[in-house]
């Protein structure tokens, strides 16, 4: 029965569902977990990096996930004023991120100002939505978590999914174990937490949702948006050493001696 409706993106099923979109969401739930937490003085994005093979070239930079893989997580920057974490198909994400970068730079060219965060998110979601409606195309299999700052609304955190829906969040997640990550975040989230506390919360949630109990810097990625003492906004992708230090602080690091064995 469902065969009649799920092969095309543009057709509602009798129950009022769009199967292709749901399948895209399903694809994302196999991706590594990504979470984002909004603090009063910044935002943290954390993502699981799935290491599929030892032979795979590990990028020295934490920004890039291995190319061409399925269900990888990564932090990339759509524009200079925002960063985002990706859960889903990397190849689809690359297309969308390129689109976002172009949109943001075009806005800068027109208005000589950074694009407000929500506008950029909406632009991207409009594109995603198009692929759920126009015939013969498959939706993008990616969810994004965006972190950004603009003068009007200060720090902002957004989540978007393949259907083209988006929303602003205080803390949210995407990818595998989204349900449990969300409930953990709901439990742990404190209003007015600092960026440092948010980072701690992020590793704790990741350690519980990921398959392995002990984390290491190869398996996760961290990025933060914050404000320096003199009011400047910065975005930073963490180095492996910084992640290790954070993990040790929260006693979640993989034992070095155990690794040797």
């Amino acid at each position: 029965m469902s065969r009649r409706y799920d092969s095309r993106t543009t057709i509602f099923s009798p129950e009022g569902r769009l199967y292709q979109v749901e399948y895209a969401l399903e694809a994302i739930s196999h991706a590594g977990t990504a979470i984002g937490i909004l603090a009063k003085d910044g935002i943290v994005l954390a993502a699981e990096r799935k290491v599929t093979s030892k032979l795979l070239e590990q990028d020295t930079k934490p920004t890039r996930s291995p190319p061409g893989g399925f269900h990888k997580c990564k932090s990339a920057d759509p524009a200079s004023n925002m960063i985002c974490a990706v859960a889903g198909m990397t190849s689809d994400a690359n297309i969308l991120i390129n689109f976002a970068r172009q949109s943001a730079q075009r806005y800068l060219l027109t208005y000589n100002e950074d694009i407000p965060c929500e506008q950029l998110v909406r632009k991207l979601c409009d594109l995603k939505q198009g692929y759920t409606q126009h015939g013969g195309l498959r939706p993008f299999g990616v969810s994004f978590i965006y972190a950004g700052w603009d003068p009007q609304r200060q720090f902002q955190l957004y989540l978007s999914n393949p259907s083209g829906n988006y929303g602003g969040w205080k803390a949210t997640s995407a990818g595998a174990n989204k349900a449990s990550a969300d409930s953990l975040l709901k439990q742990d989230y404190k209003e007015d937490c600092t960026l440092k506390e948010a980072c701690g919360m992020a590793v704790k949630v990741l350690s519980k949702t990921m398959d392995s109990t002990k984390l290491s810097s190869e398996k996760i990625e961290f990025a933060t948006v914050g404000q320096t003492a003199d009011g400047k906004i910065y975005q930073r992708l963490w180095s492996a050493d910084e992640i290790t230090t954070l993990l040790k602080e929260h006693d979640l690091a993989k034992d070095a001696s155990a690794e040797d064995k």
Binding site: L109, T110, Y111, N112, E113, P116, E118, Q152
Partner: peptide, 17 residues
Amino acid sequence: RNETDLSPTALAHYVRG
């Protein structure tokens, strides 16, 4: 569209464009 007004600098650069 955006539920916010353009700033004078943004508008000036838009007009210039």
